[in-house]
């Protein structure tokens, strides 16, 4: 149903840590792999071995650079559906194929009723919807709805495929509607943010910002006073004009004669 539920029981979604993501694409290919045989199946590829290979993916990993020169940063940036609370992609849909689940807030496309008009993909600011040229319907992240409640797979595997695969642990899954949930706490602690908040679609997924660097700006730690045989006043050799080598040997001798 195209109209949005007044409220959803839960707000299931992902939290993606831009401080940890190394851009390995595991979340993208594992997503493609699971969904090629799952709810979003098929996910077709066009010209897969030809001159213009492209296909339907529900998750894609970009890399951006921000800032200039040495102060700049490289940030890997996975992007999938944010399961917005008030998404236009649902309300524009003429068929009701695009809908937001009342139970958990997952935004889905019903592949049985979608007519492939593409309007929802025009309405999404996040590029989260990809039209499947081979299947004629719209595809999008399903939040692995066919995993997270799947009694046929192991309980610990009832998480999205991308979260399960992510080698760095940069992806977290949970109920962002529950302020006590681990994901909500993570978002609070790390200053998780919304993409393009000005659209007011109120994304459920959150991004955790890259942490501040600890590089050239950092103060060097003090010289460590190495353990000494007797307490004779710290790590410096007696003031002498001897070259560094001599001072080092003097110090070593002292160290060795404990």
């Amino acid at each position: 149903m195209t109209t949005l539920p007044a409220s959803t029981g839960k707000k299931l979604g992902l939290v993606i840590d831009l401080d940890t993501c190394v851009g390995c694409h595991a979340c993208a290919t594992s997503c493609k792999e699971w969904n090629s045989g799952g709810y979003a199946a098929p996910l077709t590829d066009q010209d897969p071995y030809g001159v213009d290979p492209h296909g339907t993916w529900l998750n894609r990993v970009h890399a951006f650079e921000a800032g200039e020169g040495t102060a700049s940063r490289t940030v890997n940036f996975p992007r999938s559906c944010l399961h917005c609370d008030e998404p236009d992609c649902v309300t524009v849909c003429p068929t009701g194929a695009s809908y937001k689940r009342a139970e958990d807030g997952i935004v889905l496309v019903n592949p049985e009723t979608c007519i492939g008009c593409k309007l929802c993909s025009w309405a999404c600011p996040y590029g989260a919807r990809e039209y499947d040229y081979g299947h004629g319907v719209m595809k999008k992240c399903t939040l692995c709805v066919d995993r997270i409640y799947n009694s046929e797979i192991l309980a610990e595997d009832r998480i999205p495929a991308c979260v399960r695969a992510c080698p760095t642990g940069a992806r977290h899954f949970g109920d962002l509607g529950d302020p006590e949930s681990a994901v909500s706490e993570l978002v609070a602690a790390r200053g998780g943010f919304d993409l393009l908040p000005e659209f007011g679609m109120r994304p459920v997924n959150k991004y955790l910002p890259p942490r501040a660097r600890r590089d050239a700006g950092a103060e060097p730690p003090p010289v460590v006073a190495m353990p000494r045989p007797s307490d004779d006043g710290g790590g410096q050799s007696p003031a002498s004009a001897a070259p560094a080598v001599e001072r080092l040997f003097a110090w070593i001798d002292e160290m060795l004669s404990r």
Partner: peptide, 27 residues
């Protein structure tokens, strides 16, 4: 705003997620 990375300065794409245009880019 799209990336939330403005805090570090001007944002530029470094690597696209795929080398040939996808549906989004074509459409």
């Amino acid at each position: 705003a799209a990336t939330g990375l403005g805090r570090f300065g001007k944002v530029r794409p470094l690597e696209p997620p795929h080398t040939e245009p996808n549906y989004i880019m074509r459409e």
